[in-house]
Design a protein around this nucleic acid. Structure first.
Lengths: 169, 169
DNA sequence: CCCTCGTGTTAGGAAAGGCTAACTTTTATA
DNA sequence: TATAAAAGTTAGCCTTTCCTAACACGAGGG
């Protein structure tokens, strides 16, 4: 398999797939709006994706994924969905942030790691009834700790990974 | 607080802190080797970090972190350690990959998410004895699934997030 | 004291990915 | 059908981060 695409190129593919799924033709303008970039950036990116054989586009027309492009787009999208689930279901990250953050992670994590995350979610969901109780317990613990409580057994110092105490009040 | 530094700049700071911790003076050459870049790249980066007030360096001499630079470097390092622990202790990611992957994540995840991950590890470690059993159960499940077993309740299709069946044999 | 060699810096350039401005093509409407 | 608006493209530029080549400093050996 060729080297991984850049985050930027993966985003273009993911966006094209997503527009297609919504039944919209993937026009330059629509891609630009979805990614919050300008049209010339899209044109440039498409030029590069065409060279790689991942999309086709008749001049001045809509963009279509090739089979290979579709495969990559689906992979990226699948990663995104798994990461979003993990962030929200396990870590309880705020809905405002899950998409943005999953979107950065999807370009960075290797398949193996995403798969393990997927299996972790799968495990929590299907394979052990006790797990739900544990996860609820974790969510409670999380709320307490985020509210300022302190675990007596733990040397976690607030601020050490970038969150100041004031941020968590 | 100012905007987040670029991944690259965070890496320079983290590396300088790490060299200092090893008792070595943070010279341009040492930083270059540690990051696998050439000396002029380091000079350029240091120029930018000096302008931001994050490092000081007498000309042709060793580099030192300012108080602010040290704070950032420590935050990045702390994120790295937490992510590495999560990847290895929870997901069982291979030791060869944990550092590389944690190193990419550390620049991408927001403080809130890293903190939640930290609390998750903390929870697993200190706050519920049953959790260990669950996690061991997960590790077993992981091994089975990675060896080709299939969860009857789960529609996980191999390959959908980029791992081909052949990769997992 | 000078010279050499390792280390640091500067100059100049490439690639990626974004931008604006200006041009071309298509579409839609009067 | 003529033409204006919308959509796409091209040209040219900026920033970041890396590179190579060439130059400058500075500590140790003759």
């Amino acid at each position: 398999m060729a080297d991984r695409l850049s985050p930027s190129m993966e985003m273009y593919l993911k966006t094209i797939l997503s527009l297609e799924k919504d039944g919209q033709p993937a026009r330059v303008q629509a891609i630009a709006s979805a990614l919050d970039v300008k049209k010339p950036s899209v044109s440039g990116a498409l030029h590069s994706l065409k060279q790689k054989g991942l999309v086709v586009q008749q001049s001045y027309g809509a963009v279509h994924l090739t089979e290979e492009g579709r495969t990559v787009a689906k992979q990226v999208t699948a990663r995104f969905e798994i990461l979003k689930r993990f962030l929200s279901e396990v870590l309880g990250v705020d809905a405002t942030n899950t998409s943005r953050e999953a979107c950065e992670l999807e370009h960075v994590l290797c398949s193996e790691t995403v798969q393990r995350l997927h299996l972790f979610l799968d495990f929590l969901e299907h394979c052990n009834l006790d797990v739900n109780a544990i996860m609820e317990h974790f969510q409670e613990y999380l709320q307490q700790r985020l509210a300022g409580g302190h675990c007596p057994n733990c040397e976690l110092k607030s601020g050490e990974c970038g969150t100041k105490p004031a941020d968590r009040a």
